[in-house]
Design a protein around this nucleic acid. Sequence first.
DNA 1: GATGCGTGGCC
DNA 2: TGGCCAAGCAT
Length: 329
Amino acid sequence: MLQQTQVQTVIPYYQRFMQQFPTVQSLAEANEDNLMKAWEGLGYYSRARNLQKAARQIVTDYHGKWPQTTLGLQELSGIGPYTAGAIASIAFNQPTAAVDGNAFRVFARLLEIDDDIAKPQTRKVFENVINHLISQERPGDFNQAIMDLGASFMTATNYDTDQSPVKAFNQSYLDGIEDHFPVKTKKKRPVPIDYFGLVIQSKKGYLLEQRPATGVLSHFWMFPLFNKQSLTDGKQLTEPKLIQQLESQLLSDFQLPIHLRKISGKPVNHTFTHQKWHITMLTGQLNANCDLSYFPGNWVQATNFTNVTFSKVQSKMWIAYQDSLISEA
DNA sequence: GATGCGTGGCC
DNA sequence: TGGCCAAGCAT
């Protein structure tokens, strides 16, 4: 849970999760819907699937006994160099580095290491240094202390090194160049993508579509999204023309005769690490007698939405739709 | 080795 | 608002 996620965010999820799945065995046997529901809102959902895979590996391949070395631990799904080091040092007292973002930041500043921490190969530099410095007696406490330093006095921005207990060892601070470290190249901006989001209701419920097994929000059930770019085949069309195009596509591809209209209110925006979605919400009435079975999705009553795991962007679309009903009433 | 993968908080 | 950041990993 703590991979790329702050402790503050994780704590309530962790407590609920451990209550629901108290043992490796229980996690291995968990129902997928329950698992995803327990993870709902935490993000990076492949972590949940990998966690269960790892539990199943431990039960079946390791007969319930954890591997205890960094190399052995990395055989488990979802466990990479950092997590393996953290488990090996904290749980099994192995004197091995756990290099996370905190460790990068702390040691880059302490030792003025100017390798670009955005590059994968740089991790080896830090592992080498830390494996020479780490306490042989209390390796877990050592790694935790580094992470706590990085999360308190030596944060990425607004750090307060003057109050730090290790300032006397902080070379970049002593040299007055702490703001030069760590060196980290910038990430690309999220790519903007325009969608229509469809809220279509029949007597059987709202139409939800399952996203493919790969890519953003894989496996999640959402209101159907249509990429405007692929809808027009690259051509520039006015919005009414675009909506007409979508209507005819729904009819020809899925036998859904429908008149679409924009809902009131603002479009839904949602930014992921690499994509920025701008969703124009549409709704419309279906002909009561049309056959609903051609569209590759499910019709779900709103009363059953609590049983479906919603991503943040799906929640936003649902809220936007409900708000539009209120303001139009 | 670069890219994709969520969400929330901060300024 | 937009950019950056957060106890990274799989492909």
